[in-house]
Design a protein around this nucleic acid. Structure first.
Lengths: 210, 210
DNA sequence: TAGATTGTTAATCGATTAACAATC
DNA sequence: TAGATTGTTAATCGATTAACAATC
């Protein structure tokens, strides 16, 4: 087979597709109805030809001389990434960072729903975090089971990150999304991702200085 | 020339180097003194052979049978990326997100120093954010000039992001680091980076579902 | 029509991977 | 020594880029 779509995307394509989807979602929120590959390129820093090639592998989504329909392309890409449904996530840590995450709609924009927030500090339990009420850490396993949560977001200080990750893994989470900055170890069947804004900044700075 | 180092790194190498540096910095904080290419690979999701090849292009930093000295490698990479010095950044937005950023040491760990926080809300001016006191937005140009700030961090609601970016650009900032999620436009001589955690999550989810 | 942008080819460049000798 | 890990080669695969016909 030389044409047709693969059963599973390569890592590079999948990562770029997710990035396009993010840009399209923001463009839609900004009221845009059409967008060109060059505009997507500006925001993603991915070559425009590469974007057109990535997309054309799955169908002819664009209009020559015009660009792409934002709505239509969001539908196509979320279909390709199979992320069109609703996915439940749980947030550990109700401090300032946790509150900022709960209030933001970064996750909600892509169909990720925060079904619960827990904190190990008894003083925080009962207070509100976004639209939710902070619950005790010992409710974590039940929360994950009841809501079929596969993503756990870690928003605790670096020192506590590994313990929280362990708890999440024990409770059945498959993806650990770590905002603490600390390195965490997870078993092979679990994916850990540590956000590191400084990496992007170091990168940008290098090209500024060079 | 087939050997020796390039005057300027390729985009791929530079991005990976920044990522290695982040992992090494965290490993050092966790008390590690040595690390192997396989461990760096686990945390960065970059192939171990690729890591060794990237590093060996600049010298022989590792010890066969042992791995790399964390301290020594931090020194080498920050030299290669020319980011060893101190760099001043300014934070716009003293809300929960801004406070979380000011409190975290993601930036401080890499020599980025937040020299000021401003907010357009007069009610917030004067209150504290991390170790700093929130200042009025109209002090932004002076703050940037006095401290030779080249990086501006945007931690405001999406609606205000473009205006803030414009202000930062007018004040002479060269890198805009945007946490708002909104798409922002900047002139060609300025680099904009929008953090989008959801992109990584969509990516991880795709491989979990597929 | 004229201008713009997509879809697609071909050619180059860099990333990835397996394999293994060197050596700690 | 034995075990482990680096440094490096070679072969493959994917990304990048320029160019341009197709077409809105």
């Amino acid at each position: 087979m030389t044409t047709g779509m693969a059963d599973r995307l390569g890592g590079g394509v999948a990562a770029r597709m997710a990035h396009y989807l993010q840009v399209l979602t923001q463009a839609k929120k900004a009221g845009r109805s059409a967008i060109t590959s060059h505009e997507i390129s500006e925001y993603t820093h991915v070559n425009a030809t590469q974007i057109r090639r990535d997309l054309s592998g799955f169908g002819t989504f664009g209009k020559r001389g015009v660009g792409y329909s934002v709505d239509a392309l969001i539908g196509e890409i979320s279909g390709i990434l199979r992320t069109a449904g609703q996915h439940n996530i749980v947030l550990v840590g109700g401090g300032r960072l946790g509150q900022a995450i709960a209030e933001a709609d970064v996750f909600a924009d892509h169909g990720f729903s925060i079904v619960g927030v827990v904190d190990s500090d008894p003083a925080k339990v009962g207070s509100s975090c976004g639209l939710l009420t902070i619950r005790s850490s010992n409710e974590l396993p039940q929360l994950i089971e009841d809501n079929q949560v596969i993503v756990g977001v870690v928003a605790v200080p670096a020192e506590a990150a590994q313990d929280v990750a362990d708890e999440l893994v024990r409770a059945g989470v498959r993806i650990v999304f770590n905002y603490s900055g600390a390195l965490i170890d997870v078993p092979p069947h679990v994916t850990a991702h540590t956000t590191s804004p400084a990496v992007e900044l170091l990168y940008a700075l290098y090209f500024h200085l060079a």
